[in-house]
């Protein structure tokens, strides 16, 4: 996958992103670009800024410095047409954040209908196609609280895909799930990657990252410490901080799920 990625122009370009909360930098001059069809995984300890990076990349929060380009054009939180830009970026949150008052199909059809202005019937058709491709066809008319965690997570993915985004941002979407459900959701992501979706994924699942990513970025204290192919990051990390992080991850998971050994 890595070889393929290099040949395409960047879809999403983050340059020098800096974000402070109460004066404390949470993102510190992060630069990162995603080529078309590329899958990039963000790894790093809790609090290293992965979620914040995804929120900023999705233009959900203003930046303190830096710039974002989408398909070559500069975009920002402050833009008048920021809503239109967000439709080109899909995000799936760490929590599910489904809309509890809407059925599954209504959750997915809402943005096509309201934000894209599709006719209701067309929006529902698109929603049902997406749900079918994610194996959720029979659940279309259930309310989200009747679904398992893994099913809810896949609904959230379907909802994010419903505006046909150029890039999909995924935030630790497996952390609330048990191992069986994790496998279920990861399978979905693998097939999305195989279908050529451009994705930026924050994850604690090192084995999954190694498997699905074209590139791994290691974050620590809001800095992008090191990036490279999964083979290189997991096999021969250059930075001492990356080595230390991976050593700790492996000692916790007992080497079971951690690759690169």
């Amino acid at each position: 996958m890595a070889a393929r990625a290099r040949t395409h122009a960047p879809v999403l370009e983050l340059k020098g992103l800096t974000k402070r909360y109460n004066g404390r930098p949470v993102l510190d001059r992060i630069s990162l670009s995603l080529a078309e069809h590329e899958v990039v995984c963000l790894i790093g300890a809790s609090g290293s800024g992965k979620s914040t990076l995804l929120r900023c990349a999705d233009l959900l929060e203003p930046l303190d410095a830096g710039s974002i380009r989408l398909n070559g054009g500069r975009v920002a939180y402050e833009d008048r047409d920021v809503d239109a830009t967000r439709r080109k970026l899909g995000i799936v949150f760490q929590g599910f954040n489904l809309f509890p008052h809407l059925t599954v199909v209504e959750n997915v059809a809402l943005a096509p209908r309201v934000a894209l202005g599709l006719a209701p019937a067309a929006a529902v058709r698109r929603a049902k196609e997406l749900l079918k491709s994610l194996g959720l066809a029979e659940k279309a008319h259930e309310y989200p609280d009747r679904l398992s965690g893994g099913q809810q997570q896949r609904v959230a993915i379907a909802r994010a895909l419903a505006t046909e985004p150029k890039v999909l941002l995924l935030d630790e979407i497996t952390s609330a799930l048990d191992p069986v459900l994790v496998a279920e959701v990861l399978e979905t992501l693998r097939s999305l990657a195989a279908s050529g979706m451009t994705m930026l994924i924050a994850t604690h699942e090192m084995a999954f990252a190694a498997d699905v990513a074209d590139r791994i970025c290691y974050l620590e204290g809001g800095r992008l410490v090191e990036e490279g192919t999964p083979r290189r990051i997991f096999g021969a990390p250059r930075d001492a901080r990356t080595r230390e992080f991976l050593r700790r991850v492996r000692s916790i998971s007992g080497g079971r799920r951690a690759p690169g050994r």
Binding site: A84, R86, F93, N97, L110, A111, A162
Partner: peptide, 24 residues
Amino acid sequence: SQERAARALGLTRVQALRHVVIPQ
């Protein structure tokens, strides 16, 4: 987080209020 999820989908603030926040 409900309003944020709606905004992330590209809904405007008014649309998010109308379709997500107020009904709940």
